[in-house]
Amino acid sequence: MNFHIMTLFKEMVLDGLNTSIIGKAVEKGVITIDAVDIREYSTNKHKKVDDYPYGGGAGMVMQAEPVYAAYQSIADKIGQKARVIYLTPQGQTFNQKMAEEFAKEEDLIFLCGHYEGIDERVLDKIVTDYVSIGDYVLTGGELPAMVMIDAIARLVPGVLNNDVSAEFESFHDNLLEYPQYSRPETWRDEKVPDVLLSGHHGNVAKWRREQSVLRTAERRPDLLEKAELSVEERKRFNL
């Protein structure tokens, strides 16, 4: 899978993403991450990419042409039309289901805005998805792009050392992940639950499922409306 990031801060996104598990996946060639500096496509001798907004108002607006030229360079490179994700608080809130949907794509293009936004005309021309990572405002789209790429990339086969782990983490089936424990067996007088030491895989699976439901009910009850629960589970946990 190939990630393309249109940005004013190329080093920021590459330094952040070429580390840890995602960085190792890049080294293995499982995914690629390419950042395109929008300033390189400015026709201004000072490499300016912003100007005052028509109609007045505070701040500056990113101009259409440098953004479009940067996009066209990516489109020409990959030779096919790809989804273009514009990171904006006006977009649909990103979630695990969206990550799973995006992970099916071969190429994804992320457009990182700055200042007071981007000229609407180029957004209308190239953007396919408007996405937000939450109801708050950041200085630019780089951090949201990095968050999304991390969430999407780990769903690509071969990125995680244990591909099965992605299927049982938080938000799988709209349930939070069960509690996890490691050595030592007793830590500051707190013991690991006996069932996890039993070696009985069926009982362990049952306990983990119960804990996922209970934890979701306690911390994110809003998720339970879409969770796949049995009639027995709903009765047992009063859901």
Rank of each mutant, 00 (worst) to 15 (best):
Y71P: 01
V61N: 08
A35Y: 05
D37F: 05
L17Y: 11
V26G: 09
D15N: 15
E40L: 09
E11N: 14
P53V: 00
Y41C: 01
G59D: 04
Q63C: 07
M60K: 03
V61E: 04
V30G: 01
T32G: 12
G23V: 13
K47T: 04
H46Y: 15
Q63M: 14
M62A: 08
Y68W: 06
V49L: 05
N18Q: 14
P66K: 02
I21Q: 13
M12A: 04
V30F: 08
A58H: 13
I22F: 10
E27H: 08
G57E: 06
S20C: 14
G23N: 09
D37G: 04
Y41P: 04
I22W: 03
T32D: 13
F9N: 02
K45M: 04
V13P: 04
K47W: 00
M12W: 00
M62G: 11
N18H: 14
R39M: 03
R39L: 00
D34T: 14
G29K: 10
Y54M: 11
L17A: 13
Y54W: 09
Y71W: 15
K48C: 06
N44D: 15
K28Y: 09
S42E: 11
S20F: 12
D34P: 00
G16S: 14
K24S: 14
E11D: 15
A35E: 04
T32A: 08
G59T: 01
V26A: 13
A64T: 02
G57K: 06
S42A: 13
F9S: 02
V30D: 03
G55C: 02
A69C: 07
D50A: 05
Y41L: 00
V30A: 00
T19H: 13
V49D: 08
I21M: 10
Y54S: 09
K45I: 08
F9K: 01
T19I: 12
T32L: 07
F9P: 00
I22N: 13
V30T: 14
R39V: 02
Y71N: 05
Y52G: 00
